[in-house]
Structures are given as structure tokens and as C-alpha cells.
Amino acid sequence: MVEFHQIAAALYLAAGVGALLGVVLRNGRIERGAAWGLALGVAVQGLGFATLHRLHNAPAVTDLPMAVSLMTWMGALSLLALMWRLRIPALAAVIGPAAFLGAFMAALHIVDRPEAGLAQSGSWPHVHVLLGSAGLGLLGLAGIAGVFFLAEHRRIKAKRNVRGRGVLPSLEALDRVNAIALAAGFPLLTLGLMTGVLWLQEVHGVFWFGTSHEVWMVIAWGIYAGLSLARFVGHQGARQAAASAVAGLLFLIFAVVGIGVLA
């Protein structure tokens, strides 16, 4: 089981390095190869999660390393889905290393026995983790696309090094990734929060404990609600949307990883 995550980690790392090389060397073939590496990593890690679920009816997926791993896996999976229609293999240069960290952490922290509490909690913890991770993974992807967008926007505006068709994604593709990831990620995050509340209600009879995780996730939800409104109702421009997504990503890193570690 651990081996799946280890192999996936190696594949993600190779995909990340390959994509980076593809960008630096302006070589589309290397980039496409990296995308295939990423796809293979996603498949192997997916097998790892499936095996974990098969062996333990209530696997321990709520601890930080596993949750981050699931998030990065969801992010990589979403990127592959978007790659179907958009020329964005260069994003694997960031998603690959992120997924590597996630898989690596998972390989180090996989718990062989189910958590006692979770085993008695029914499906809610898993639905909560799955939806929440999918939402956060997608919002993370929006942030990464935002970083690429801002760099590309700056380059094209400054008229520097704009010779020829590059291997970096077009601004329009990056903006679409941003919009799609936000449009799908925010509802998933919302559902993740709601299922978390239902889980608490079912197990503890309360909606809210007031833990730092709960507080920061609600703040994150509020922030993304604002970003979604600005983007889809206020017709925010692509650059502002990208900057917002990057700010959102930084906040998420703090709220999930930072608070998770501190807690």
C-alpha cells in the first residue's frame, strides 16, 4: 500500500522535473511526456487510495499528511482533466512537485489501522474529506494557474522575451483554468464544510466546536465566496482574478498546512 504512494511520488517528481525542463528548453515533447508521467502517478496513487479503502473500511484520511496528499492528488487529477481541452502541460511543473510532496508525506504517514473514532462515524468523515480535499485541490490549482497567469501577463505587457510561440500556456487557457477551478472548487468546498458539520452533528450532537481548523476553514470559505462573486457576478478582469486566486492559495496554504501543523 505504501509502495503505491512511493511509486506515485517518484512519478510526480519525474513529471515535475520533466515539465520544468520542457518549459526551460521550450520543448513541447518533454512537456507532453511529463503530462503522461503525471497521469501515471495519479493512477498509481489512486490505486493506493483504493487499496487503503479496501483494506480498512474506515481508513485514516483525516490526518494532515493524508488530507494534503488527497488534495494534491485531486489537484493533479483536475489538471489532467483540464489538459484534455487546454494546452497547459506546463502547469505540471508546479503540480508535479506539489503532488510529490503530498504522496511522499502520505507514504511516510500511512496508518495501517483505522482510527477508532472514524470507524464508528459512518461515511460522513470520508465524504467530508473527499469533498473538502477536492474543493481545496481545485482552488489550489486555480492559485497555481494564477501564478502562471501573472508571470505571463507581466512578460507580454513588458514585451520581453515574447519571441515565437512558447511552450507556456496562453493567458486565455490560464484564465479558463482559474475560472473552471473556482467554479467547481468553491461548491465542493461548500459541500465539504456542510458534510463536516453533519459529521459533527451525528457524532457529537453539535454543529460547531470552534477548533482552529473549523474557524480557518470558514474564513477560507468566506474568502472564496467573495472571490467567486467578484469573478462571476462582478465580471472581474482576468489579471485581478489571477491575483485573487494567488492570494487565496497563500491563504489556503496557511489555513490548511500552517494551522494543521500548529494544531
Binding site: 494546452r87 507580454i156 510561440r165 507556456l168 496562453s170 493567458l171 479558463r176
Partner: peptide, 9 residues
């Protein structure tokens, strides 16, 4: 045209 392809997909 090449520049346009860096802006539009």
C-alpha cells in the same frame, strides 16, 4: 499572429 497565440488559446 504568434503573439496572439500567446494570449488566446
Amino acid at each position: 499572429v504568434e503573439l496572439a497565440s500567446q494570449i488566446f488559446e
